[in-house]
Design a protein around this nucleic acid. Structure first.
Length: 105
DNA sequence: CAACCGGCCTGGA
DNA sequence: CTCCAGGCCGGTT
């Protein structure tokens, strides 16, 4: 367990777990994995080849702003809007309410 | 082994 | 109180 090779795999699992119309943060994921590798999470998503399978676009920064995206931040915002999430000024509206916490591990 | 990264936090101006 | 910069953690390549 805890083998690093599984790390990206867990990230994908959590991201896929996010219901429609909701988002999550790198921090939340890292915390859910009981780690502080925020960067590793984003990095894993970036290298993610199952971008269409995994909704990396549902993962945003902890302050509600759009993080990065392999296809571009605009594309990410566009996708979020498509999920019913309002993005204004490059930030998510009612981010806290849209934020899905992995409920303490 | 070294560098990079889609972030987060804290400190200083 | 707001804005900018640097430092830091863990993983991947």
């Amino acid at each position: 367990m805890m083998r690093t090779g599984d790390f990206p795999n867990r990230v994908y699992m959590l991201v896929r777990k996010v219901p429609y119309g909701k988002v999550t943060t790198y921090k939340a994921i890292a915390k859910a994995l009981n780690t502080k590798a925020y960067r590793a999470v984003g990095n894993a998503l970036n290298k993610n080849k199952n971008i269409e399978l995994v909704k990396c676009c549902k993962v945003v920064k902890s302050d509600g702003s759009i993080g990065g995206y392999s296809e571009g931040t605009e594309e990410k915002a566009k996708r979020l809007k498509k999920e019913g999430i309002q993005v204004k000024g490059g930030k998510i509206v009612d981010f806290q309410k849209r934020l899905l916490r992995f409920n303490n591990k």
